[in-house]
Amino acid sequence: MKVLDAHKLSYRELNDIIKEEAPREKEIKIKNLRGQRYIGGTLKEGCTLYLDGIPGNDLASFMNGAHIVVSGNAQDGVGNTMNKGEIVIHGHAGDIMGYAMRGGEIYVKTDVGYRVGIHMKEFGEQIPMLIIGGSAGNFLGEYMAGGVIIVLGIGDSPEESIGNFCGTGMHGGRIYIRGEVPAFKFGKEVKEAAMEEEDYRLLKDKIKKYCKYFDYPMKKINLEDFHKYVPIGSRPYGNLYAY
């Protein structure tokens, strides 16, 4: 495993090294990260980055297949417009994680900030997924046009597992939340839908991975406790205009 020391490197210097090394290294460990931005941006499959310290904003922006493991917390904008790949964060992440994300998976051990999963969209085979172990802030899944968000709410009461205005402007995708969440927490474009066989299969698969990554006992999570939320329609503002 290649080891890089990010100490005193600017984000540009550091990313130049990563971009150069990634095509020939299967695994790169980067230590002493101190908020450098855009780590792993546009990286393709074939390389896993192990990050020690704090990666800065826009971690994995436009990422295209690489894997990233963050040993601690991440900041804002994780997976911004990410296309493909996987990110595992052994801590919490900040606001707008998964903005306009189109593919790949992000696992967060604990909480995430505001506007997570905003504008997430899916296309064909590409279905982006966010698996959040703790709670999410306001506006989770805002304008969501596709993909999957799973909130486990570990350590929180169901009421606290999401903020307000969840799914405002949502017109695609689905959100799974563990436990009964009061209706006022959701935007008016969202409705609850019945869980089906396929939903349980998906949840089981993703939660299994979560438990493996973060060493959490699977038996503590009962799939029967999940509720599914979907958009009322794919055209939330279709009747807004006078033609």
Binding site: Y99, R115, H119, F123, Y143, A145, G169, H171, G172, S234
Partner: peptide
């Protein structure tokens, strides 16, 4: 839909602010 990489027939919504 293919060029925008979104599903067929859904509204393509670009709100005024970039939320980042």
């Amino acid at each position: 839909a293919a060029t925008r990489m979104i599903p067929l027939g859904t509204d393509a919504i670009s709100p005024a602010p970039h939320h980042d």
